[in-house]
């Protein structure tokens, strides 16, 4: 997990995209749309809104590319834009946190695919029920694979705050997902 990797090719693509090369811009989009959409989808819990915010993230990023001093920092920069879009939206709209569907019944006789789907739904639902602050760090760390210092820089929070939020969130998730993680 963790989405696309940042490497030299990203730096090169950023330089080309900055010069207005539409093909390079598209390549950057293709490279990063999945992690960005994945993050936004987990945060706003709405497919259509997540798609719209993904587009907005890339439009802002590509338009302001000349302001990015270090092309290698493209990933954090992109996530920063996405995080800010979610936060702006959070300040004006109350999130439908409980709208995560029916509780999943862990009992039953499922096929492997059904089991995978059920597990995914259960994780999705458990993450959805976290507070926005806890969800943010869980999604960035566990689902996007960002390390703690990167999250701390991205969210502009002290490392200790990120750690304590993550620990608390893990504890909540461990309880919510008990039927799937207890032996």
């Amino acid at each position: 997990m963790g989405g696309a990797a940042t490497d030299n090719s990203t730096g090169l693509l950023v330089a080309q995209a900055r010069a207005g090369d539409r093909a390079a811009q598209r390549q950057l989009f293709e490279q990063w749309q999945r992690p960005i959409y994945g993050y936004l989808r987990q945060m706003v819990r709405d497919d259509e809104l997540a798609a719209d915010l993904t587009q907005e993230t890339f439009v802002k990023a590509l338009r302001n590319l000349p302001r990015l001093s270090d092309p290698e920092a493209f990933r954090s920069w992109l996530f920063r834009i996405a995080v800010n879009l979610v936060r702006d939206r959070r300040s004006t709209v109350v999130e439908p946190l409980e709208a995560a569907g029916e509780p999943v019944d862990p009992q039953g006789e499922p096929s492997r695919q059904v089991l995978r789907d059920e597990l995914r739904a259960a994780v999705d639902q458990a993450v959805a029920q976290l507070s926005a602050e806890h969800r943010e760090v869980v999604v960035l760390h566990h689902l996007q694979g960002l390390d703690l210092p990167a999250i701390s820089r991205l969210l502009r929070l002290p490392a200790g705050t990120v750690k304590s939020r993550l620990a608390r969130a893990r504890d909540v998730l461990r309880r919510k997902l008990a039927p799937y993680v207890e032996e």
């Binding site: 989405g3 749309q33 997540a50 869980v138 689902l143």
Partner: peptide
Amino acid sequence: RRTAALLASQPLDEPPAGLW
């Protein structure tokens, strides 16, 4: 630890086609 592994094993949501 199993909880953390379970979270990390979840595939990211797929973006819809045509966003570009």
